[in-house]
């Protein structure tokens, strides 16, 4: 399947330590262009560390991480749109401010797209972020990140604080707004109801990748959902 499609991400022998603790242990994996990959793992398994390395936020690691054929750096940051686990907007800013900041920062940012998504998700352009609920802040952040025309979206727990109804809405927003040539790596510990959007599932456990497989293949061969398989692997 997809043998001739190039990889957007190529990771070889990636290890990362915090002091003496080994957080990522010799990880190897690729992401093909156009794929939506789910990165699953319990808390502390290494998901966020892996994503931060790909986003260029953690520079000390050993191994080889290439995105769009280049080592992580200025170029890769220009093609990667990263959604951090925690919001980084100043509480006094509004969505309107965020749009102008992103427009300045990223040449690939589509302000019209952001505005229409705000409308779709019923968020005000003028409400201050500090007065928004956690779910609203997460939606806003996701809108900003998905409004870039990036080649790779790194979404770290985009569904953490939102209620199940909004979760569906956010997933639909992701599907609707990603360009089919770009790729998404989405980390989450909520698997059920989310797995419908993935091509592939990657399970990370204690810093190792313990599974990297097409969702269809998992269902075909094991006759089980990713959610059930996850519970087996992590019990």
């Amino acid at each position: 399947m997809n043998n001739n499609i190039p990889n957007i991400v190529e990771i070889k022998n990636l290890s990362k330590n915090y002091n003496k603790k080994e957080v990522l242990k010799n990880i190897n994996f690729n992401i093909t262009e156009g794929q939506i990959v789910g990165l699953f793992g319990t808390n502390g398994s290494g998901k966020t560390t892996l994503i931060k390395i790909m986003a260029g936020l953690l520079k000390e690691y050993s191994g080889d991480v290439k995105i769009g054929g280049e080592n992580v750096g200025v170029y890769t940051k220009s093609i990667v749109s990263y959604l951090p686990e925690k919001t980084y907007f100043n509480k006094n800013t509004t969505a309107e401010d965020a749009i102008s900041i992103f427009s300045d920062f990223y040449t690939d940012f589509n302000a019209d797209k952001a505005k229409s998504m705000l409308k779709e998700l019923s968020l005000s352009e003028t409400q201050r972020i500090g007065t928004m609920s956690k779910g609203m802040q997460e939606k806003l952040q996701l809108i900003m990140v998905m409004s870039r025309e990036a080649r790779l979206y790194l979404l770290d727990e985009p569904l953490g604080g939102v209620d199940p109804a909004s979760r569906d809405y956010i997933l639909d927003t992701i599907i609707k707004n990603y360009n089919e040539k770009s790729s998404i790596l989405l980390s989450t510990h909520l698997i059920h109801d989310v797995e419908r959007i993935f091509d592939k599932a990657v399970f990370i456990k204690d810093g190792n990748i313990v599974l990297n497989e097409y969702v269809d293949v998992i269902r075909d061969e094991k006759g089980t959902s990713i959610d059930k398989l996850f519970r087996e692997v992590y019990k």
Binding site: I36, I175, E180
Partner: peptide, 11 residues
């Protein structure tokens, strides 16, 4: 259809 079914376009 991807939007209607809420799934990945590749599916």
């Amino acid at each position: 259809l991807a939007q209607e079914f809420g799934v990945n376009p590749n599916t």
